Simulated assay, not measured.
Amino acid sequence: MHNFLFDFDSTLADTRDVAVLATQQAYAVKGLTQPSREAVVSYMGVPIEVSFAKMATETLSDTELAELYTEFRAQYHEAEKLGITLFDGIADTLTALKQRGDHLYVVSSKHSVPLQRNLDQLGLGQTFEAISGSDTVSHYKPAPDGILSLLDRFDLAADESVMIGDAKYDMQMGHNAGVATAAAMWGAADPASVKAEKPTYLLSTPAELLTI
């Protein structure tokens, strides 16, 4: 593999606590029933434009949902200051991949503005050649749009490309795009569902990316 496409949340960085706190706070501010931690975690990897309506016990209008998205982004901006951390081994692995001439990208369900802000916060702002956020695609994961746009934009060979992620949606997106898939088991909240997608590679540590 020469082209590495990474998910962000729970693949590059541990953001689970931040996502749960920001989501629950957003629902509370809007007077809505707070989703459980388990519900929030189960939807990580899915854009909020899809997951928030499903987690709400109330029926929300498009306007109310838009206001909830805005509130979540504000809450996330505050919560992320409490700590987003890279998983052990990620920094060294990214450095080694770049040093040997491989190409690195991020394909995330997160909006590209907070995605870039989080990468900057972690010292990875200049590490990736490009990022693809939820605002840059017409169809969200598991649709292959984010991957296909990068393959086309940078003239990447699909058979030399791999999608790395912690959730079943990442594996499904990779399959749909016709690229290899690597399960980042160090961040998987539901390992069984990830394994069920039969990823090309099942990785227990980031360093194993150097062997594929």
Rank of each mutant, 00 (worst) to 15 (best):
F72M: 00
A130N: 08
I164T: 09
L97S: 02
Y76N: 03
E80M: 14
A130M: 01
A96V: 03
R100P: 11
H139K: 08
T136D: 15
A189H: 04
D62H: 00
E80R: 09
A183S: 04
P199C: 02
D166K: 08
A56E: 07
K198I: 00
S193E: 12
W186L: 11
M171C: 09
N176H: 10
S132M: 08
T59I: 01
S149C: 06
D120N: 15
K98D: 14
T127P: 01
R153K: 12
T136H: 14
E78K: 11
Q121W: 04
K110V: 10
L68P: 03
A91R: 13
T85M: 00
S149N: 13
V179P: 08
P142E: 13
A130K: 13
G178R: 10
L86P: 08
Q116E: 12
Y140I: 03
M171E: 13
L60G: 03
V106E: 04
I147K: 02
D190Q: 06
Y105R: 01
A96Q: 15
A91T: 09
A189F: 08
Y169K: 01
I84K: 05
K54D: 15
E78G: 00
L94D: 11
L124D: 10
S109V: 05
Q172F: 11
A180H: 13
E67R: 00
D190T: 06
L94Y: 02
D190E: 08
L65T: 02
A188P: 07
K54S: 15
T59V: 10
S109L: 02
R153A: 05
L124N: 06
G174Q: 02
S112P: 06
S134R: 08
D159C: 09
S161P: 01
T93E: 12
L82Q: 15
M171G: 13
I90V: 15
L151A: 05
Q126T: 14
M171K: 07
A180P: 06
K81P: 00
G178Q: 04
D62G: 07
A96Y: 07
L150V: 06
S51G: 09
H139L: 04
L65P: 06
L115Y: 02
H175V: 05
Q121L: 11
D159E: 13
A157N: 09
G123S: 02
E58F: 00
D145A: 05
N118Y: 12
E64K: 05
I147L: 15
S138D: 15
L115H: 10
H103Y: 04
S193W: 01
Q75T: 03
